[in-house]
Design a protein around this nucleic acid. Structure first.
Lengths: 163, 163
DNA sequence: CCTGATATTTAAGTCTACTTAATAATAAAT
DNA sequence: ATTTATTATTAAGTAGACTTAAATATCAGG
């Protein structure tokens, strides 16, 4: 299939490294803040979505909406998330981050970033250029994939409005 | 600091995308197998380490060794991990993956890989070359960082023999 | 207006992941 | 040889994250 140096293998190897390192920082931060992975998952999703309901969070995390509701309760209690009635459909709620919640997300990203800072500092200027070009390319391609397969998956129930 | 296109920003953006996508596959796989994140963390660590004790797992995951011991219990019960006495220090145990455990790790990696396959398929040959070069560079640099800061962190209690 | 689908919550109960404290066995040191 | 430190386990108890099932409120269609 490819006589070209195998991108997939390299992507994979790179991923393993990234996971190992950035997860460590992240797990530690998660301990510090007392938030679970799922809770961070929820915060991140609310952060990157425009409109987001309770069920959406559940779907994204692969749990029931009851579970999502309960977890969101705790986040609301901690003042990280706001849960207001959806004016267009009064059955539903719209979730958003409070300022405190937003800060938490930013710091979560930072916590994972530590290792990347060290890494990027170890690069020469010419190396930086090579890598920047490649990453820009990857990001662009990845985003295209993101929007392409709309409706391709029969499981879409409408939960995807959150992505 | 850099007039060069900012590698760190790109790394960051790339990371966010990777996380979002590969985590989804991973969470789903985690559900299927009934293993928690922590359990996978333990499996992965045992996989990548030569010699690994109970406390090491705890340290890596940021929990007490009691917690690690209990969690490993469940993994042993499920036939994923073997726990044998360390012949060189009979207080300790040495952890290793069973064949079943190894398979689980491989499949876990596969579960995260789905998205990357699609991504790599969307690249032209010339793009693949650019990206392969850059990734190879990144991986190499990352590995150097990995081994460099030995003893730099005052918190090292010996737990790091697992990495 | 009545019916059925949807969005969220509450309730009850299970299981996992943690914690600290106590125990047991071994190693290392004086 | 005795003390001190390390490694792993067990015990008891807490809290989070799930689940299913039932309750509420609202929407959308005949």
């Amino acid at each position: 299939m490819s006589q070209i140096p195998d991108v997939l293998d390299l992507l994979q190897e790179w991923m393993q490294l990234v996971m190992k390192h950035s997860m460590h920082g992240f797990i530690r931060y998660s301990k510090d803040t007392g938030l679970s992975m799922s809770q961070f998952g929820a915060l991140f999703q609310i952060h990157r979505s425009k409109i987001c309901g309770v069920t959406d969070i559940g779907a994204d995390l692969g749990v029931s909406s009851a579970a999502a509701s309960q977890m969101l309760d705790r986040l609301v209690q901690q003042g990280l998330v706001e849960r207001i009635e959806d004016p267009e459909d009064r059955r539903g709620k719209r979730l958003s981050l409070t300022e405190k919640g937003m800060k938490m997300v930013q710091e979560g990203i930072y916590a994972r970033q530590e290792w990347m800072k060290t890494l990027s500092a170890s690069l020469s200027d010419s190396e930086k250029e090579i890598i920047s070009t490649a990453l820009a390319l990857l990001v662009e391609k990845a985003k295209n994939i993101n929007s392409a397969p709309r409706g391709a998956n029969p499981h879409e129930t409408g939960a995807n409005r959150c992505l």
